[in-house]
């Protein structure tokens, strides 16, 4: 099983490192043809507008959207969550638009207010989390489950084959959220091969 990491821009190396630590074959994805043969893909943190322009420049934007709609599992962190969201409340573009949530880009404001905190997650307990100019989840569709919250705000959500966090589990050394995604990928794979 191979998991890809969208590698047009952002903290790609950190995600690759976590996946490798968990014994999963992982490789960067910059071009549409590199999507072939993946069990899942991680969309890392970075700048969503920059990532989107880079994805459009090579046709990766459309190819990735089609792959996800065809069942490719995806896990987005921070900017990755914004790319997956159905709607961005404070930005004129919709990006991949596959996850039924509405997000607001950068609810934190300026970087001096970015922070670390503990997040309460279903079945996982307390998770250390780093929030960097993070998106806020403003609406959740009926098929979406909130798996983790900070106060009463959803920060970790799941919808079938999609997982998204508004924080950066790849920066903390705690691999539980990635393990959850790998479980999803393994299930997806065994289902495909059944």
């Amino acid at each position: 099983m191979t998991v890809g990491v969208l590698a047009v821009q952002g903290d790609v190396r950190e995600h690759l490192r976590v996946l490798e630590r968990l014994g999963v074959a992982a490789r960067p994805v910059r071009r549409p043809e590199e999507l072939a043969g993946l069990a899942g893909i991680v969309l890392p943190g970075g700048e969503s507008t920059a990532m989107w322009r880079l994805m459009r420049a090579t046709g990766l934007a459309g190819a990735l959207r089609n792959a996800i709609l065809a069942g490719l599992l995806a896990f987005g962190t921070c900017a990755g969550m914004i790319l997956l969201a159905r709607r961005v409340t404070n930005w004129p573009e919709t990006f991949l638009g596959v996850l039924d949530i509405a997000v607001e880009r950068n609810v934190i404001g300026r970087q001096v207010d970015s922070f670390e905190a503990q997040v309460a997650a279903n079945g996982l307990g307390e998770l250390p989390a780093v929030f960097l100019r993070a998106p806020g989840v403003r609406e959740i569709g009926p098929g979406v489950r909130a798996l983790g919250r900070l106060g009463d705000q959803p920060v970790l959500v799941e919808q079938g084959s999609l997982l998204a966090a508004s924080f950066h589990p790849e920066l903390t050394g705690d691999t539980r959220v990635h393990e959850m995604f790998i479980q999803m990928c393994r299930k997806g794979e065994s289902w495909q091969h059944a």
Partner: peptide, 21 residues
């Protein structure tokens, strides 16, 4: 909630990687 920690500062810089300022 802790802001301005070294991890918050260096982690933010990691998000620029591959990019142009």
């Amino acid at each position: 909630m802790d802001n301005g920690t070294y991890r918050v500062k260096t982690g933010f810089a990691e998000m620029f990687k591959g990019g142009v300022i």
